[in-house]
């Protein structure tokens, strides 16, 4: 009976789907209830990492500003009138952490919500990136009610870059050459090879390299922007290494980097990752251990092996043991070879 009734309702076209007409109250309750149950059930298997690092939340905040704020707004800002016209309309997220469990927040941001306009995370296999945003949602300050509404700006509705120069936006996460990147999962760009930077940006732009953070930013860049930005960073000097006392890990990592491990068919990293090799082979000195471990993981799991260059590196990454990855990460984190690289050498040989 119920099924026939619902069928007739659908066929008749009487149910109004206009965003201007809210659902009937019972329907609304039913939908919200089903949504909560679904999120609660599906997020059961999610394992929580450590989210206490304030730098992680800071990275989340930077992504939120361009990836989420157009719909949800952000503290100190008003909601965009166009986003307000959605049904359901994207709520402010200041209180989200008290409404949802941490695992549920992760699940919502990772998978999105059907029929609501809440999108899934852009990097399909990049669950690791989602946690930065979750860490931020947990610490999101409450909106400052003392500022009168008419003095508040609304975030631009466009995703990506709203500053006059894209470079200012980049600095917010990647640092400005003196300041280190906002979090260890963000690589240093200053002093990297030009050819590599340009290719990395076009791979994000075309969706060939996955990252929920970088893909939307690169998508709005033109080919000229990419060329200009790559040149800008390649010409800059690499930030000074943070001197760390060399321990046994670092020494082992240096050995692998310089000599490889012949027994394991592992070539010396330096024979490809050096200033004099192809402009497409990145420099690794000064990359954080966290970033190196994460990227080697992506090469090994196949997430970053779809491209021609990624394929070369995957073949090598597959031969590394977790121990060796930790050793190399420690070595690079401590500054790597740190040989000063003249700017010309970085630009040659494309």
């Amino acid at each position: 009976m119920v099924a026939i009734g619902l069928g007739l309702l659908a066929v008749s076209g009487l149910y109004n789907v206009a965003a201007t007409r809210p659902h009937f109250r019972p329907v609304d309750h039913l939908i919200k209830f089903a949504l909560r149950r679904s999120i609660s059930l599906h997020s059961l298997g999610v394992l929580l990492p450590d989210l206490t690092d304030p730098a992680l939340a800071q990275l989340g905040r930077e992504h939120f500003a361009t990836g989420c704020a157009p719909c949800h707004s952000q503290p100190g800002h008003a909601r965009h009138p166009i986003a307000r016209g959605m049904l359901p309309s994207p709520p402010r997220l200041e209180g989200a952490a008290s409404r949802w469990e941490t695992r549920e927040l992760f699940w919502i941001v990772r998978h999105g919500l059907k029929f609501t306009g809440m999108p899934a995370w852009t990097g399909r296999d990049r669950d690791d990136e989602v946690w930065a945003v979750v860490a931020y949602l947990q610490r999101m300050p409450h909106d400052d009610d003392t500022v009168p509404a008419r003095e508040k700006r609304t975030p631009a509705l466009g995703f990506g870059i709203d500053e006059p120069s894209p470079l200012a936006r980049c600095a917010a996460c990647h640092g400005d050459g003196r300041r280190r990147p906002v979090h260890a999962s963000v690589p240093v760009l200053h002093g990297q090879k030009e050819g590599y930077l340009a290719r990395a940006l076009s791979e994000y732009h075309d969706g060939r390299r996955q990252s929920g953070i970088m893909e939307p930013l690169a998508a709005v860049l033109s080919a000229e922007d990419i060329g200009r930005i790559a040149r800008h960073f390649a010409e800059a000097d690499r930030p000074a290494a943070v001197a760390r006392p060399g321990d046994a890990r670092v020494a082992r990592g240096r050995r692998i980097f310089r000599e490889g491990v012949p027994r394991q068919e592992l070539p010396a990293c330096r024979s490809c990752h050096a200033p004099e090799t192809s402009a497409q082979f990145p420099l690794l000195d000064g990359l954080s251990g966290h970033y190196v471990e994460a990227q080697l993981g992506l090469f090994r799991s196949g997430v970053r092996s779809g491209t021609t260059h990624g394929r070369i590196m995957s073949v090598i990454a597959e031969r590394l043991s977790p121990e060796q990855i930790a050793d190399i990460a420690a070595f690079l984190d401590s500054g790597g070879e740190r040989a000063p690289v003249p700017a010309e050498a970085r630009r040659e040989g494309e």
Partner: peptide, 8 residues
């Protein structure tokens, strides 16, 4: 040299 063939 540029492509690291000398690694192997």
């Amino acid at each position: 040299t540029a492509n690291g063939c000398g690694a192997c």
